[in-house]
Structure formats: structure tokens, C-alpha cells
């Protein structure tokens, strides 16, 4: 059944994405000038930070090789186009135009920009696959803060958001912390970026801490994603 819909969904999705982008651009022309000015000053600050981070990156490569961790750019990636989304608008899943014929299997991680986690493959057909997004209530992923000190579980909230849950009361977490996959369990590679902590509060039973995590992705605008097949 999916094969029947696939070619039409690809065409309509691409056209809709372009039309949506054009509409947004025309509506935002007035704001572009102010944004441009703001971005120029931000760029200067980022250039300075980039220089500092290059040193950090060199150190990171050395340390990762010492710890036998996967280098970040040594994954076999399969590029896939998004052809449809959850029709109820609950932000629960995407459908991509790659399937078992392309080596895609259930459980594979799906990313964008080589390191931002989108979700995991949940169902595979010959030519298509369904990707369960992080915001889906059935999605649970082991995660930690970027410094590795605080561990917990990332779970979705009815397609609306992401919660970093089961954080011990003794662990430290604050607004602005970056959350990445911890690699526990071996299903999802370690170090894939999930989002940034927006708010921290106690769980309902007060046994754990919970954090609301904001992803940098706008899932509804995704057109191309990458499936991590394996490490090179």
C-alpha cells in the first residue's frame, strides 16, 4: 500500500515544503534587516568561540581514541527524503523513502546534520520506513548531559515535547545544559545531540528530577534526514 502512495507523497511533500518556505520568506521580509544586524554581532562572538573550540576538538579526538569511542564522522549514513508525516499533526512520526531494500532496519537512529538526533526507525517496508520521533510518547532513549555527569531517560510527550526524566535528585542539572545520547544499551550511538534544557522540576512522586528539553529541530520542516546504518 505504501508503494502506491510513495511517488505522489514525494511530489506533494516537496512542493508543499517549497510553498511553505516561500510563504514564510515573503511574510518575514520586514524582519530580515533587524535579524541581519543582530546576526552580524553574534557571528563575531562565534568566530572567537570557534577558535577556542578547535583546541577543544583536537583534545577530544585524542581522548576518544584513548577510550575506544566511535569517532563522530565514521558512520555509514543513508540519506533519505521525508515523504509524509503524522496526519493528526501530533508530531509523532515521519515516513522516509528508504526501506529494507536500502539496508534500513528497525531500531536504526535517524539524524540530521550528522549529529542531531531526530528519532529511530520503528517500521520498515521494502521502499519506505517509519521514523518514530523523539516527541512520540512511545520513544524512550538513554541520555546524559554533554559533560556526562547527569544521566536519565529522554521520552516524548504526545508529540508536543521532550522530557529528560529519571534524573537522580543528587545529580546536577540546570537550564542551558546540553543533552546528548549516552550510548547505554548500545542501540543508539553515544554523543548524538538531543536538545537543551529549558526547565527543571521534580517528578510527580518527587523521587527524581525532570527537565523539559527543547530540540533545535523543526520537525515539520524536515525534508532530508540521515539513517545511521553502522560505524565505518
Amino acid at each position: 500500500m505504501g508503494l502506491l502512495f510513495l511517488p505522489f507523497q514525494k511530489v506533494f511533500y516537496s512542493v508543499s515544503a517549497v510553498a511553505d518556505g516561500t510563504g514564510e520568506f515573503l511574510g518575514s521580509i520586514g524582519q530580515l534587516k533587524n535579524d541581519n544586524k543582530k546576526l552580524l554581532s553574534e557571528n563575531q562572538a562565534l568566530l572567537a568561540r570557534s577558535a577556542m573550540l578547535q583546541d577543544v576538538e583536537s583534545e577530544n579526538v585524542i581522548l576518544r581514541s584513548q577510550l575506544n569511542l566511535l569517532p563522530r564522522d565514521h558512520w555509514n549514513l543513508v540519506a533519505a527524503s521525508v515523504v509524509s508525516q503524522d496526519p493528526q499533526g501530533m508530531g509523532n512520526w515521519l515516513e522516509i523513502d528508504r526501506g529494507s531494500d536500502d539496508g534500513i532496519a528497525v531500531g536504526m537512529s535517524v539524524v540530521v546534520s550528522n549529529s542531531i538526533l531526530v528519532g529511530r526507525v520503528q517500521q520498515v517496508n521494502a521502499k519506505t520506513a517509519q521514523v518514530l520521533l523523539l516527541t512520540n510518547s512511545k520513544s524512550t532513549i538513554n541520555a546524559s548531559t554533554s559533560d556526562g555527569g547527569t544521566k536519565g531517560i529522554i521520552r516524548g510527550e504526545y508529540g508536543l515535547g521532550i522530557i529528560f526524566d529519571m534524573i537522580l535528585q543528587t545529580d546536577s542539572i540546570k537550564t542551558g545544559d546540553d543533552v546528548v545520547t549516552s550510548g547505554v544499551g548500545g542501540e543508539i550511538p553515544k554523543g548524538l545531540y538531543v536538545g537543551t534544557v529549558q526547565e527543571v522540576h521534580d517528578s510527580d512522586d518527587h523521587l527524581f528530577q525532570q527537565a523539559v528539553v527543547t530540540s533545535p529541530l523543526q520537525v515539520s520542516k524536515l525534508q532530508v534526514v540521515f539513517v545511521i546504518k553502522d560505524a565505518k
Partner: peptide, 14 residues
Amino acid sequence: VLQTSVLPLIFHGR
């Protein structure tokens, strides 16, 4: 096809 590939892009969520 419209429900799965067009409307979610127009409405951007619920």
C-alpha cells in the same frame, strides 16, 4: 496524500 504530505506542512502541528 494531501492529509499526510501537505496539511502537516501547512499547519505545523496541532
